[in-house]
């Protein structure tokens, strides 16, 4: 699970495009052994009148899935990513975040050998953040290589196993990391509080009894303090291993 980090215009997206064959190197060569390659662009704003589910079924068929498998897999992915408004929403009417979810779903219709994502967390709600991290981890566990760009240090630290920092088109640092230990905090709601906008919160899971937050271990103290200050009750705090 490789994260490419660096300032805007440093060349991260160009590296991704070279990886998937959308750009050709002016010098040097790109060697790629993966046959099944998936790509998620940084912005996905389709003007298509096809519904999200029809679009994904077509993409699945292009991938070589049977009609039934394409329908089933696209349904599963849209359910997991919780596409707001339903799978029958025309692509052109999807919000940025929902369009991003469809872009992610198309990339995962068939388990890719190489999955390349350009700022995939951008525009996603915090609930989908956790789902995306889980999907990427599953892809890596099934033997796929995952490469993504991301600006959030927390996301990189909680997801990537290798980090490459790029500056002006040059690799300036390469590190191997262990994804950060995560902490889950289970809470019973008090006063109104939108956890999706709280710093360091990687995932928010709503359930009948309350809310479960996922944060990098070490940065959960601030979240606990915020919860208590807003009259929320803490049910449990436990460390979880990254998936």
């Amino acid at each position: 699970m490789l994260a490419l980090v660096g300032a805007n215009g440093s060349g991260k997206s160009t590296v991704l495009k070279l990886m998937v064959g959308l750009s050709r190197p002016t010098t040097g060569t790109v060697r790629r052994t993966a046959q099944i390659v998936s790509y998620v662009p940084d912005v996905f704003a389709s003007h298509d009148r096809l519904s999200a589910s029809a679009y994904l079924r077509h993409m699945g068929r292009i991938r070589g899935l049977s009609a039934r498998a394409a329908r089933q897999r696209s349904g599963e992915l849209l359910d997991r990513l919780a596409l707001t408004g339903g799978a029958d929403t025309p692509m052109r009417k999807l919000s940025k975040g929902n369009a991003q979810k469809v872009a992610l779903a198309q990339a995962l219709l068939e388990p890719p050998q190489l999955l390349v994502l350009d700022e995939p967390w951008s525009g996603l709600d915090t609930t989908a953040h956790g789902t995306l991290r889980a999907l990427l981890t599953e892809t890596a566990r099934e033997g796929g290589a995952v490469a993504f760009t991301e600006h959030s240090d927390q996301v990189v630290k909680s997801t990537a196993t290798r980090v490459c920092e790029i500056h002006q088109g040059k690799l300036i640092q390469r590190t191997t990391t262990t994804p950060h230990q995560l902490t889950e905090i289970e809470l019973i709601p008090g006063a109104d509080l939108d956890w999706s906008h709280q710093p360091d919160v990687l995932e928010v899971r709503h359930h009948d009894a309350g809310v479960t937050l996922v944060l990098p271990t070490g940065s959960h103290d601030a979240a606990l303090l915020t919860a208590l200050n807003h009259g929320w009750s803490v049910v449990s705090v436990r460390q979880v291993k990254p998936e």
Binding site: A45, M59, I62
Partner: peptide, 14 residues
């Protein structure tokens, strides 16, 4: 075809 969708199609088809 939207330019971003075209990129996805190109990567899929290779």
């Amino acid at each position: 075809e939207d330019p971003t969708q075209r990129k996805i199609t190109l990567v899929m088809m290779g």
